[in-house]
């Protein structure tokens, strides 16, 4: 890729750590990889965990630190879900890449340049099972001269035989203080000021996802200037205002179906994501103390059903209306079974 103009990159890219030691909060993997830099030994790796926690960053950083800019291209193969990774591609591309010998491992300057190549399979959870199976053999055949880095969000989507060949590292969501440190660093570089309240808001709206936090920060900085408040961040994060969730809950309590339907229509017209509405409704329901556990259970069950349906692509309005209807029936102690369903 051509050298990039710094200024034309969004902040998430601009502030992507270039060195493994700068990856925040993932101490275990940082320790192992720092060791790798000294000994040049490296097992196959499997990184998994939620979005925006540093998986891709870490893999790219170690690859760069091992080989340096000159050898990088010939030693590192990065395949991600945007490349076709059917069985054939896995067989041919990886074979072609792995088969070319690397020669002896000669240290070049600061770069250890170990005598193996690295294949980074980012977003490996979207590979088909067949393709993953095809990889087993390839991994064995070239085990002397290649190291695989698998990266994914869901470890359960990686077939056991692959997972068991790797050293596994779970990337954890970033806690508030770590996130705040990183954010403060960026604010420093960009000449922004944020107060502690804003920092804590940022961490809660981005739910441990640092990429999201950085994007919100940049959005807020562009929209509201260099002094950023908690309110600015909430507004760019698209969180649903409390009043809206509370109005829905109150409508359920009232027992008036038409009123509840009106509130649901309002949520849809305002464009609030229903998946997020469900999450916020869940917090309200769990938090209130004037309803029984059984009522809570009924509501949570319907939230869970709707969540699954949404993932399957079901309609947002219909799902929310169903949840609201179930919630109303639970709160108003209407029977769980329908009367006319035969």
């Amino acid at each position: 890729m051509a050298p990039l103009l710094q200024s034309s990159q969004p902040w998430v890219e601009k502030y992507r750590p270039k060195q493994v030691k700068d990856v925040a909060h993932q101490d275990e993997v940082v320790r192992v990889l720092t060791n790798t830099l000294e000994t040049a030994n490296c097992p196959h790796m499997l990184f998994y965990g939620p979005p925006g926690t540093g998986k891709t960053t870490t893999a790219l950083a170690i690859a760069h630190q091992l080989y340096g800019p000159e050898l990088y291209k010939s030693r590192v193969l990065e395949l991600n879900a945007s490349d076709d990774r059917g069985i054939n591609v896995v067989r041919t591309k990886i074979k072609d890449f792995a088969a070319v010998a690397v020669g002896s491992g000669q240290r070049q300057g600061v770069y250890p340049c170990p005598p193996y190549k690295i294949i980074i399979l980012d977003e490996a959870d979207s590979m088909t099972e067949d393709a993953q199976n095809a990889l087993r053999r390839t991994m064995e055949t070239y085990s002397k001269v290649t190291r695989f880095f698998f990266i994914c969000n869901y470890i359960s989507r990686i077939i056991e035989p692959l997972a068991s060949r790797c050293a596994k590292f779970r990337f954890k969501q970033l806690p508030e203080e770590i996130m705040s440190n990183r954010i403060l660093h960026i604010c420093n570089e960009e000449g922004l000021t944020v107060d502690t309240e804003a920092l804590s808001t940022l961490s809660s709206v981005s739910q441990g996802d640092l990429r999201r936090a950085i994007t919100y920060l940049q959005g807020a900085a562009r929209l509201f200037g260099s002094s950023i408040s908690s309110k600015d961040l909430i507004s760019v994060s698209g969180a649903i205002p409390r009043e809206v969730t509370e109005a829905i809950y109150a409508a359920c309590k009232s027992g008036d179906f038409d009123l509840a339907n009106k509130e649901v229509n309002y949520v849809i017209a305002e464009g609030y994501p229903v998946s997020q509405m469900l999450a916020q409704l869940f917090e309200v329901v769990v938090g209130v103390d004037d309803i029984s556990d059984e009522q809570k259970a009924r509501i949570c069950k319907s939230l869970a059903t709707a969540d699954k349906c949404l993932v399957d692509g079901a309609d947002e309005y219909l799902q929310l209306l169903d949840v609201v209807s179930n919630t109303m029936r639970a709160l108003c102690n209407m029977p769980q079974e329908f009367s006319y369903d035969i």
Binding site: C309, D312, L318, Q319, D322, S325, N326, F338
Partner: peptide, 21 residues
């Protein structure tokens, strides 16, 4: 009627989901 509204909206959601699948 109020009571039927709950039932009907439930089945609408149910069949729309099935339709999607």
């Amino acid at each position: 009627d109020e009571e039927l509204k709950h039932e009907v909206c439930h089945w609408a959601a149910y069949y729309e989901h099935r339709m999607r699948m």
